[in-house]
């Protein structure tokens, strides 16, 4: 990836942002902005697909070319509006965007989906079986579902812009279920970077009760 090279010019132009609210940037993080490791970039892209794409597709993000201060305000606004990002995740996504979609970035950046497809998956993304059997906890799954899945699949798994999951046949085909959740399918983003295997097992267990 050419990301580190791209960044040097950005850094010169980057206004040091004194931030407010949820996005707190320490001096150490500021230094760190110069680069992201491939694994960090991959995780940031996955977070964007899981968290930002709940409300809008990533083409809206890819077309932006913004300085650090405006990215900061934008990401902060999205977190305030309900983007499910922890403090660390917010800082990572923000760094990714500042490095990638800066005012001098070329017009023809690959899409976030294309970048993700080109990058190496991290080793722990294989299907659940490698972790041994997991026991899903439906009560925990209900909360995870509400935070992560409900925006598209609807309250009570009754469907929305995404398919109805209550009594969906995919629940009986665990391989297909795990494959879809971990790696995505069609418009559904990959959740492997966001949900642990225990989380997915819990969501599956809760869905099975619907």
């Amino acid at each position: 990836m050419s990301m580190p090279q791209r960044v040097s010019s950005l850094i010169l132009a980057t206004v040091l942002c004194t931030t407010v609210g949820l996005v707190v940037i320490t001096a150490a993080q500021e230094e760190d902005r110069a680069s992201l490791s491939p694994a960090q970039a991959r995780r940031a892209a996955t977070l964007i697909m899981a968290r930002c794409a709940v409300c809008h597709t990533t083409d809206l993000i890819s077309q932006q070319r913004l300085p650090a201060d405006r990215w900061t305000v934008t990401v902060e606004k999205m977190v305030h509006w309900g983007a499910e990002l922890s403090k660390d995740d917010t800082a990572l996504v923000l760094r990714y965007l500042i490095i990638r979609n800066h005012p001098g970035a070329p017009d023809d950046l690959p899409t976030i989906e294309q970048e993700l497809a080109m990058s190496e998956p991290t080793p722990n993304q294989s299907v659940a079986a490698s972790d041994g059997p997991l026991t899903g906890l439906p009560a925990r799954g209900a909360g995870l579902y509400a935070h992560n899945c409900q925006a598209c699949h609807g309250e009570g798994a009754a469907g929305g812009v995404g398919p109805t999951l209550a009594r969906n046949l995919i629940l009986k085909n665990e391989g297909a279920f795990w494959e879809t959740v971990l790696h995505g399918r069609g418009p559904m983003p990959a959740w492997g970077a966001v949900l642990s295997h225990q989380d997915i097992a819990d969501i599956h267990a809760w869905l099975a009760t619907r």
Partner: peptide, 30 residues
Amino acid sequence: VGRGGATREVAQQAEAAEAIGPLTVRVTRP
């Protein structure tokens, strides 16, 4: 138009659907 692979995919999938367009897509959803 639409640089995004997803956009192009949507366009291809739906070519047979009811006529609308041509439009230049800026955001697929919303």
